[in-house]
């Protein structure tokens, strides 16, 4: 299985990941190599096998519906690149 540069660009866009145009071919080669490795799985018969999402067979624990968090906006927003009037600022969103 080999990926084209075009596919790499498409995936990169889906992941919102900037990639230098000069690196696209190298990524395409590396990703294709990984997919070749992964292709080993094709030979394994898995029709009757249930997928395993977690190592341990446990059920989700539930949390009591209690408010435990206090306002820490100042602390959190001290980390933000751009805030104003308590809001995180981003380039204009067009709907």
């Amino acid at each position: 299985m080999s990926l084209t540069s075009e596919q790499v660009n498409k995936i990169a866009h889906l992941a919102r990941l900037g990639i230098d145009a000069s690196d696209v071919d190298a990524y395409a080669r590396d990703l294709s190599g990984i997919l070749d490795l992964v292709a080993q799985l094709d030979a394994q018969q898995t029709d009757q096998v249930l997928p395993m999402a977690h190592p341990l067979d446990q059920a989700q624990r539930l949390r009591a519906d209690v408010v435990t968090e206090e306002d820490q906006r100042e602390l959190f927003q001290a980390l933000a690149p751009q805030v104003e009037e308590g809001l995180y600022l981003v380039p204009k969103v067009i709907e």
Binding site: V8, A12, A15, L17, G18, I19, D23, Y27, L31
Partner: peptide, 24 residues
């Protein structure tokens, strides 16, 4: 714009191994 914010921030700050894994 927004897409530029995402793609460049992530593109400039993640290294190539992280990018490879995100892509795959």
């Amino acid at each position: 714009d927004l897409t530029d914010l995402y793609t460049r921030s992530r593109g400039e700050a993640f290294g190539s191994e992280v990018k490879r894994r995100i892509l795959i």
